[in-house]
């Protein structure tokens, strides 16, 4: 699990590996750059809601199953 700057964790890297996708392939499906996928996976960037929904749809999961703030933002 990768932790972002504001305490938001995500499972994108694990999900990508589970679906046997490269960073470039995931970037292509999300219509973003590979740099963005890398920044998301390493927790350097928290996506906008539209991009988070896109990710959730692509992996067939709910947003809160991919992203988790562990109550930090409450």
């Amino acid at each position: 699990m990768n932790e972002g700057w504001w305490g938001v964790n995500n499972h994108i890297k694990a999900l990508r590996a589970h679906h046997n996708l490269t960073q470039a392939e995931l970037a292509e499906r999300l219509d973003v750059s590979r740099q963005t996928v890398n920044a998301l996976e390493t927790g350097r960037y928290d996506p906008s809601l539209p991009l988070a929904f896109k990710l959730a749809r692509l992996f067939g999961q709910r947003i809160e199953e991919i992203f988790n703030d562990d109550g930090v933002l409450e």
Binding site: N2, E3, Q35, N38, A39, T42, G43, R44, Y45
Partner: peptide, 10 residues
């Protein structure tokens, strides 16, 4: 910014 994005925390 580009370098920082590449070297994110694992």
């Amino acid at each position: 910014g580009s370098l920082a994005a590449r070297g994110g925390r694992e």
